[in-house]
């Protein structure tokens, strides 16, 4: 086996093991990319070309009809496009991500640097909110939102996502601030800095990475959410894109290539964020799993 080790470290030489490793990785990559391929080629095919039996064939010519149809809708057929829902999702996800990141930052700061008796227990109580099946709060949630006059609206969805985003954002920031040396805080205290002063002048300026991680994570989760969207918003004109996409998929008459194009449109913003800022996304992922 020492021979194998030596081969491994010899750059450029091709061994059977290497071929197998790359072969396996490529096969896996093809599997993961398969649905994207299908979404893309189906979306690009012209209507005449679309057929479930020939799903895998490349389009003969480029046609953007499916995307246009999914985006703009079809008045004659009575289905509205996803454009409005795309805007709804943006209007929902951006403010909700910002607010919950801000709240998480303040909470995380207190939990990390201003511990008090019972603060660990309280933190655990927050964390439990990360795990509950949301079904267990849906019924009172509908009733309460209605009383708050937030039911069925985008502000209502923002509120819900902020509330149920508190546990994860608090967790990310608490873990981030825990890595800030205590001496830094102590020194500032001796200099007479207040709690808010320390946050403002010491922690906030170095929080950019944590904010990026949190914002990306929250934006992605909120954009992708379906459950709250379907429960809280029932009017098609305020529904987020995931709910509208599902309704599209549930109807007999919307062609499946239009559904595929719609799915790609719904996936695009988070996919772009992932491609551009993937490493921050991965950090959010790790944060969500507590400590390994």
């Amino acid at each position: 086996m020492t021979a194998a080790v030596r081969t491994r470290s010899t750059i450029g030489s091709i061994s059977v093991t290497r071929v197998l490793i790359y072969g396996a990785l490529i096969v896996a990559a093809v599997f993961y990319l398969l649905p994207v391929y299908v979404l893309l080629v189906t979306g690009l095919k012209s209507f005449q070309e679309v057929s479930l039996a020939r799903m895998w064939e490349l389009p003969r010519g480029l046609g953007l009809e499916s995307f246009v149809r999914a985006w703009a809708g079809d008045e004659a057929k009575g289905f509205t496009g996803l454009a409005g829902n795309f805007a709804n999702s943006l209007l929902m996800a951006v403010p909700a991500a910002l607010i919950s990141a801000m709240l998480g930052s303040l909470n995380g700061y207190v939990f990390a640097k201003w511990r008090f008796p019972g603060s660990n227990a309280l933190f655990t109580a927050f964390l439990i909110g990360l795990f509950i099946p949301y079904q267990s709060v849906l019924i009172p949630l509908v009733v309460t939102l209605q009383k708050m006059h937030l039911y069925g609206s985008i502000p209502g969805l923002i509120f819900v996502h902020v509330v149920y985003g508190i546990p994860i954002t608090t967790l990310i920031f608490r873990n981030y601030y825990a890595t800030v040396p205590g001496e830094l805080i102590e020194a500032a205290k001796i200099d007479g800095a207040s709690l808010l002063g320390i946050y403002r002048w010491i922690l906030f300026p170095i929080s950019v990475p944590a904010f990026v991680v949190t914002l990306i994570w929250q934006f992605t989760s909120i954009w992708n959410d379906f459950l709250f969207g379907v429960i809280v918003t029932s009017r098609p004109n305020v529904q987020p894109i995931t709910v509208a996409l599902n309704n599209l998929a549930g109807s007999f008459v919307v062609e499946w290539n239009v559904q595929m194009a719609g799915a790609l449109i719904a996936a695009l913003p988070t996919l772009l964020l992932y491609i551009l800022l993937g490493r921050y996304f991965v950090r959010g992922l790790m944060a969500g799993s507590l400590k390994g």
Partner: peptide, 25 residues
């Protein structure tokens, strides 16, 4: 305003309507 909801023989729409009525909307 045509507030139509697509999906299986109205089953989606019925769920939507029930929540809207219960939600005072």
């Amino acid at each position: 305003v045509n507030a139509a909801v697509a999906g299986g023989a109205g089953s989606n729409a019925k769920a939507v309507l029930a929540t809207r009525l219960a939600g005072g909307d």
